[in-house]
Design a binder for these strands. Structure first.
Lengths: 255, 255
DNA sequence: GGATTGTCGATTGTCAACAATCGTCTTGAC
DNA sequence: GTCAAGACGATTGTTGACAATCGACAATCC
C-alpha cells in the first residue's frame, strides 16, 4: 500500500511532500518532545524555501504533531498523563463508533479487507517483532475505520491516530503482551463480521480501557506526589496565548 | 463573550485574522456551495498579500469549510445527504462522549456554567427568534463539550461543529420546532447535573437520531429515484486527486 | 543593589515577483 | 464532422527579500 504506485510520479505540491517527510521524522522519534525547531534550519535541510516549509509546519500543527508560538518558535509537544487519558478515551469512542458502523454496513469486500488485515496482525505476532505488531495493529484499526465509508470519521480518526503514534514513540509506550494481542482483537473482528453492531462497538471501546485506566492511575499518583500542582509558573506575564490550542489545563483535577 | 476583552489588542498574525473573516463569511452564507473563489480576489478584498491569504485558506481547508483542487482552484463544498448522515452520526457520538464525561467530572463551576447556557437557550426560545435559538442551542452543546476539560475532544468537536453550521446554512436546514427544543435538551442537562454518565451519554446521542434518520430517508429516496447513481462523469481523465479528502464516495451504497 | 529601560541578534511574519500547471479555445488533419 | 494536438490566458505554486516581533542581555537611573 506504500510503494505500489511507484511508477506514477508525485504530482502533489512541494509543501505536502515536505510535510510528509517531517511527519515521518516526528513519528519515527528523530525529534524529541519539547525540542525547538527553526524554519531556516529545516528549510535548508529539505532544500525548499522557508515559505514552503512554513506551509508544511502549519499542516503538521493542524495534525497536532507540532506546536507554534506566534512570532517566537515552533516546538515539539510534550505529553503528560492527561494527554494519554485524552488520547485513549477519544480513541475508544471513535473506534467504538467505527466498529459499530462497520458491523452494520459490512459488504463482502469489507469483510475480505478486514480479514486480510487481521491475518497480517496474526502473522506479525508470529514473527515476534514488536515494531511489526504495532504497525499491523494500527493498520487493523484503520481498516475498521476505513470500511465504514464515513469520510469524516476517517479524517478525525487519522488526526487522533497520528497523535497516538507520536505519544507512543515519545513515551516509549511500545510495551505490549504479544500473547494477548490476538485475543484482544479477534472478538472485535468477529463481531463485525457477524454483523453485531452493539457488541462490536462495546468491544472496540473497551479495547482502550486498560490504557485509560493506566493513565488515570498515573494521574492520581502524580497528584498525590506533588500536592500543589504548580511546579513552575511560565515567565510570560502577558496573556499571550499559544496559537494552537493554548496550553493544556490540568484536566479534571477537581472531580 | 465576544467583545469583552476589547482593551487587549489583537496580537495574532494576519493570516489568522484573515481566516476569521473568511470563516465568518462562509458561515454566514455569503458564499454559496460549489462557488469558486480565487486567491487574488480575496487577497485584494481583505487587503493582504496572496501568501498570507493562502495560509488562511489552508486553515479553513483543514476545518473542512473550503476545498482545494491542487494547481487549479479553491471552491466551497457542496453537501449531499451522505454528508448530513456523516455529520449527525459523528455529532451524536462526540456529544454522547462529552455528556458522559461531563456527568462524571462535573464541578460546581461546571454546573453553574451549564445551567447558565441552558437558561440562555430557554430565553432564546421565549424570544421566538429562530436565529438566536440556533445560536444558543449550539452554544449549549459547546458548553457541555467544554466542561469535560478534554482538550482534544473540544478541538475535534469544533471541527465538526463548524461543518454542521456550514451545512445548516447551505441547505436551509434551520427549520425547527421551537416548542420541542426545551424538552429535547432539558433531560440531557439534568442527567449531567445529576451525575448519571450513561443516561447523559445515551440521551445526547439520541438527540441527533432524528437528523440521522432524515438523512438516511433522503438517501434512500435519492437512490430509488436515480437507479444508476452516476449522473455525470468528471472530465478529468488523470487520476489526480483533490488534496483535501478527495471527492466523496456514495457512502454505504451497498449495505 | 534592584528595577526599569534601551539595544541587539535571532526568528517569525509579510510581501511581491517569478515559475509551473491547468482548463479552454483554436487550429488543423483526416 | 470529429478528433487530436498545440497555444493561450488564468490561476495556483514557489521563492527570496524585507519588515515586525520576541527574548535576552546590557546600560541606566534611583
Amino acid at each position: 500500500m506504500k510503494s505500489a504506485r511507484s511508477v506514477k510520479l508525485d504530482r502533489r505540491s512541494l509543501d505536502w511532500r515536505a510535510a510528509d517527510v517531517l511527519r515521518e521524522q516526528i513519528l519515527s522519534g528523530k525529534l524529541s518532545p519539547g525540542q525547538r525547531v527553526t524554519e531556516t534550519a529545516l528549510a535548508s535541510q529539505l532544500e525548499v524555501s522557508r515559505g514552503t516549509l512554513r506551509a508544511a509546519l502549519r499542516a503538521l500543527a493542524h495534525e497536532g504533531l507540532i506546536q507554534q508560538v506566534a512570532y517566537t518558535k515552533w516546538m515539539l509537544p510534550e505529553f503528560s498523563h492527561a494527554d494519554a487519558w485524552e488520547l485513549y478515551t477519544l480513541r475508544g469512542t471513535l473506534e467504538g463508533m467505527a466498529a459499530g458502523l462497520a458491523a452494520e454496513h459490512r459488504t463482502k469486500d469489507c469483510v475480505a479487507t478486514l480479514e486480510a488485515a487481521f491475518d497480517r496482525l496474526v502473522a506479525a505476532v508470529g514473527s515476534r517483532k514488536h515494531t511489526r505488531v504495532a504497525e499491523t495493529d494500527i493498520a487493523l484499526h484503520k481498516t475498521i475505520v476505513a470500511i465504514t465509508g464515513h469520510q469524516r470519521l476517517i479524517d478525525q480518526y487519522r488526526l487522533l491516530e497520528l497523535q497516538v503514534r507520536h505519544y507512543i514513540i515519545s513515551s516509549n509506550a511500545l510495551i505490549m503482551d504479544l500473547n494477548q494481542i490476538i485475543a484482544e482483537h479477534e472478538p472485535i473482528v468477529r463481531a463485525i463480521i457477524a454483523g453485531k453492531p452493539d457488541r462490536a462497538e462495546r468491544l472496540a471501546r473497551e479495547h482502550n480501557a486498560p490504557e485509560v485506566a493506566r493513565a488515570l492511575e498515573a494521574l492520581a499518583k502524580e497528584r498525590t506526589a506533588a500536592p500543589p500542582p504548580r511546579p513552575e509558573q511560565p515567565k510570560t506575564k502577558t496573556g499571550a496565548r499559544s496559537r494552537v490550542g493554548g496550553q493544556r489545563e490540568p484536566v479534571k483535577a477537581n472531580a
